[in-house]
Design a binder for these strands. Structure first.
Lengths: 344, 344
DNA sequence: ACGTCTGAAGTAACCGGTTACCTGACATCG
DNA sequence: CGATGTCAGGTAACCGGTTACTTCAGACGT
């Protein structure tokens, strides 16, 4: 069974008894065509079930390119929600959107960006933190210049700028502010020994949240205790494991936990429960992101406008708005995971 | 600032002092080229930062097309997990994957499929239930034939086949089996009055789960009670609202709840809590899907191999495997949301 | 020494659209 | 009535690659 040749615009032209130019004009747009001619063409299109070839179109005409979003994985709500925002805004702008996943591998990310250059993507939106090594920064910087030279835009979402003079738009959440607010929330509930669970050296998202945590403590005159800043990846298992390790050392020397994100909080809560500690009665905890498990866990957390981030990235990429760097506000969502401490 | 013309293969050829054919061969593949020539070309490619145009390639050579997955939304874990499976398998097969979202609108879905035909996608994977109206079935059937004629594959994931003789591959979860198992689990814990929360007339996913529920009841000699089958969309809000309505009618006339999926369960649990009913002490509940909130809610549920579904869809689409219809097994995950009822 | 074979590289047609430019019919005007 | 303008529609070049076919130089055989 051989593949029967595709129907092309020339087939339509032949069938309709007109030239290919006329067919193109009827399908394409604003060029004047007599109603009777248009009808002949449309009939031929229908009868042959002609579907124009997007590649040929992209090649011949200077049409708008796709909008690509590159994330770690789509299976994590944080990324999925942002991606959905991009998708929605792109659709609204009439653009095709490509979602690519890297699995958190810098090498894969670089080759995906290269792939997107081949696809002549009009915008490349990179989302989420990376551990930036020198090789990566060098190559991504080259890509940034190359994309700019080709008229495409590079947007960095919730990640550090590449450096001075590198053509890239930046939009992110106010992590430091949010972390400050939620830490202040714990402090004003009377907590003084607050475990920060989610240090990740070199990761901007983590670094900025830690910064907010520290500045809030400083403002309240609470001395920093390095032993209260605990490393953990930003997923449920890491939160669970880290809390398990901590609790194995003996009874907790803290009354509250600030988890790097809600997934870490969920894992930590499971560990706490397994150690007989109830939230919020025996231990207060707050999270970050306000993604799905948060509501069910009655978790006080920081709400991030994920959808808005995605939409803003697209608007920036298309030049609809030009404020870069752009910082999106966050707000604390108080649920039921923090218990006020009585006066000492 | 005018866009500086793109670097093309001819520029590279000129710079390297060879013909375009040679450049294409160096970059493309297996044709023999002298090492010295290859080097000249590679140097020119590097110096000019030449990036081949994917559209031109797609147009001239018969290269493999993209793999597209069409889902309701990516912000819901059920879809996100399946999409990630598709993405992973597609990447593994060296294919570009496109993720498209419809927002649950049949009209949009149809126009997306048309868009994918224009993109010359090699496979179109449609995921999730739809309420099938006649117009939709008619047009999608046409598309199915058209895609087949063009050598592309259409894969339906977790949704009903379009009809006899319509060229579409089918893969799905064993919903009836899973629903049967989880209902049997409740029955053997002694429950007899089990509320099914999540009837959606015309929706296959719901229908098949209801079927499993009913058959398990029948097997255990429990008479069906239509008043125990309650309508609800498959999201958290719907579960919450439906349970609220039910509980507003008076004290519950059931001892257990089978929620159409985990999100519905999460909403129902919130409602139960707000009515002072504790899970599992005062009310047993099971969910379906085993997506994120389930673990944190200690919810007994049915685990679905989402990732496997995505991968299987791609393998089917690429003809790596040919068993269609294909049904993926599920298994019950027992957590802590069901309380055994003592002997009456 | 001459014809033949072999392998690297070049030439140009082609993929399927778009569009600048051209043609020809008809209306309009001095 | 011929010059000019208007407008629908045709012709063919072009977008940027791939590849069938051709060319040509050097190796080899007799």
């Amino acid at each position: 069974m051989t593949t029967p040749r595709r129907v092309t615009i020339r087939d339509v032209a032949r069938k309709a008894g007109v030239s290919v130019a006329t067919v193109s004009r009827v399908l394409g747009g604003d060029y004047p065509v007599l109603a009777v001619t248009r009808n002949k063409v449309m009939r031929a299109v229908r009868e042959l079930d002609y579907v124009p070839n997007a590649h040929a179109r992209a090649l011949s005409a200077a049409r708008p390119g796709a909008i690509a979003i590159v994330v770690n994985t789509i299976a994590v709500p944080y990324y999925a929600l942002i991606a959905q925002g991009v998708e929605d805004q792109a659709a609204q702008e009439g653009r095709l959107s490509l979602i690519c996943t890297t699995g958190g591998d810098n090498g894969r990310e670089l080759s995906i960006v290269q792939l997107l250059r081949e696809q002549r993507a009009e915008a490349v939106i990179l989302v989420g933190s990376v551990i930036v090594d020198e090789e990566y920064r060098k190559r991504m910087t080259e890509y940034a210049h190359a994309l700019a030279a080709a008229g495409s835009r590079l947007v960095l979402c919730g990640r550090p700028p590449l450096g001075e003079g590198v053509p890239a738009l930046v939009v992110g959440f106010d992590n430091t502010g949010g972390a400050h607010a939620v830490t202040a929330h714990l402090l004003s509930a009377g907590h003084r020994r607050i475990l920060y669970l989610g240090v990740r050296p070199g990761h901007t998202t983590s670094d900025t949240r830690v910064a907010g945590y520290r500045s809030a403590l400083a403002e309240h005159g609470v001395a920093l205790d390095p032993s209260l800043e605990v490393e953990a990846e930003f997923d449920r298992d890491a939160g669970y494991a880290a809390m398990n390790r901590r609790l194995a050392e003996g009874p907790p020397d803290f009354t509250a936990v600030f988890a790097g994100n809600d997934l870490v909080a969920a894992g930590a809560i499971q560990s706490l429960h397994e150690h007989g500690l109830r939230v919020p009665h025996d231990m207060s905890i707050v999270g970050y992101d306000d993604v799905p498990p948060a509501q069910d866990l009655h978790l006080t957390t920081v709400h991030l406008p994920h959808d808005e981030l995605g939409r803003a990235a697209v608007r920036l990429a298309l030049g609809r708005v030009t404020t870069s760097p752009m910082t999106l506000g966050t707000h604390i969502v108080v649920r039921d995971s923090v218990r006020p401490l009585g006066p000492r």
